[in-house]
């Protein structure tokens, strides 16, 4: 079934308001940056076709609102996602501290089957700022990512297109792996069901 249909990789970008979620998405998809992105309200996605090791996929990148009151709407959007990108702003301590709660909230609302193995990628954005404005060091961020389960970590500048491609390459690969493992897991679950049913049947005779 999956071979007939094009593989769609659903990716959700989360993070506090103003960390640069829309800019990252626009930079990755259109290779452009603007100082003039409106605040995102609700959620919407942009598609991008790409090849991962000769496999054609469509990435569906969901940009979301950062204000806390919109968080509860995730239930409607997160379902079926293959990877979640957690973004913070390296000049904003609060946005860094929120990473872990965005992760937890995502897992609850997306109703992920295997939370321990769901792929997340952490991005520290706005590294184009002057060094003295930067409040979160790479080391500190690495430590957090290790603590959250060895999450891949990238430092990017959506403004100057630094590391954006590389980050989303990992996002795409991990999303594809997740998508394929889900297909496998579905088969596996079916097999287990049959087994259990069979057991039950033999007892009933």
């Amino acid at each position: 079934m999956s071979s007939r249909k094009k593989t769609i990789l659903k990716v959700i970008i989360l993070g506090d308001s103003g960390v640069g979620k829309t800019s990252l998405m626009q930079q990755f998809i259109n290779g452009k940056f603007s100082n003039q992105y409106k605040a995102t309200i609700g959620a919407d996605f942009l598609p991008k076709d790409l090849a991962i090791d000769d496999k054609q996929v469509t990435m569906q990148i969901w940009d979301t609102a950062g204000q806390e009151r919109f968080q509860s709407l995730g239930v409607a959007f997160y379902r079926g996602s293959d990877c979640c990108v957690l973004v913070y702003d390296v000049t904003n301590t609060k946005s860094f501290e929120s990473i872990s709660s965005w992760k937890d909230e995502f897992l609850v609302q997306a109703n992920v089957k295997d939370p321990d193995n769901f792929p997340f990628v952490v991005i520290g954005n706005k590294i184009d700022v002057e060094e003295n404005k930067r409040l979160i060091s790479g080391k500190k961020a690495q430590a957090l990512c290790a603590q959250l389960g060895n999450l891949p970590y990238f430092e990017t500048s959506a403004k100057e297109a630094v590391n954006v491609e590389q980050a989303f390459d990992v996002v795409a690969r991990n999303a594809l792996q997740q998508e394929e493992s889900l297909e496998f897991a579905d088969d596996y679950t079916d097999a287990v069901n049959i087994h259990v049913d069979g057991d039950n049947g033999s007892c009933a005779c």
């Binding site: 308001s17 103003g18 003039q36 992105y37 409106k38 605040a39 204000q67």
Partner: peptide
């Protein structure tokens, strides 16, 4: 705080 973030991104 939220207001000031959104004002930065107004009149687009």
């Amino acid at each position: 705080d939220q207001v000031s973030k959104d004002i930065d991104r107004s009149f687009v």
